[in-house]
């Protein structure tokens, strides 16, 4: 284990006060990718949001380098009335990274750069959303269903971008149902970590409720 790793030890996460996952442990080293699998509602998004720092964990430890994570959720965070260049330029300025021309090229967005984001198709928007990860310059990507609404060519483009990122010493944590064909990727099935309803706070909550009406 070294300082650049993302290490998760015995992590428990909750959604709306109800525990969804517990005892999750893994290590993600630079150059590796980890694919999160599991049925709908198992807690993939909740786990990613917890790791990204958007919500506190219920229990367990997360250790990672500071300012390492670029998070990409279900929504792309695009402004419909700004052009592709303006959208991407904003994030480049926020992350303090300079030119984003290579990124436009990498995600095949050059021809669209003067179009308003609102007039893009769903797949094009998704590509622009993923381009934001490339301008962030952050080492650990956290991707929640990154390939939704992408066509086969764009999925290949995206897989290429992830592979380049891994080759450059980055890491990626993805929740996805499809096979991206990334050889370095390991798969973590979240189903065995599903929280039992009687543990952590679930049962206690029920008891408090009963007491209130006793």
């Amino acid at each position: 284990m070294n300082a650049a790793d993302l290490t998760v030890t015995d992590l428990a996460v909750s959604r709306g006060g109800i525990p969804v996952l517990e005892g999750v442990s893994f290590t993600l080293s630079p150059g590796r990718a980890l694919v999160l699998r599991g049925p709908n509602g198992v807690g993939k998004t909740t786990l990613l949001r917890t790791l990204a720092g958007l919500q506190p964990p219920m229990a367990g430890d997360i250790s990672m380098p500071a300012d390492a994570i670029a998070y990409s959720g279900h929504a792309d965070g695009l402004k419909a009335t700004l052009s592709v260049t303006e959208n991407l330029g904003f994030w480049a300025a926020i992350y303090g990274t300079g030119g984003f021309d290579p990124v436009l090229e990498a995600m095949n967005l050059e021809a669209l750069c003067d179009r308003l984001a609102g007039s893009l198709s769903a797949g094009q928007k998704r590509r622009l959303g993923l381009a934001r990860l490339l301008v962030s310059g952050r080492p650990i990507w956290m991707l929640d269903e990154p390939t939704v609404s992408l066509d086969a060519a764009s999925v290949a483009l995206f897989a290429g971008a992830v592979r380049t990122h891994l080759a450059g010493g980055g890491a990626a944590l993805m929740a996805t149902h499809i096979d991206l064909g990334i050889a370095e990727a390991e798969v973590l099935d979240l189903a065995p970590f599903k929280a039992r309803p009687s543990t952590v706070g679930g049962g206690g909550r029920g008891r408090e409720f009963d007491e209130a009406f006793a």
Partner: peptide
């Protein structure tokens, strides 16, 4: 508006 389109999540994880 930023909450609806997900920008707020992204701003919360941004360096500022």
């Amino acid at each position: 508006l930023d909450f609806e389109d997900g920008s707020l999540d992204l701003l919360a994880t941004a360096p500022i």
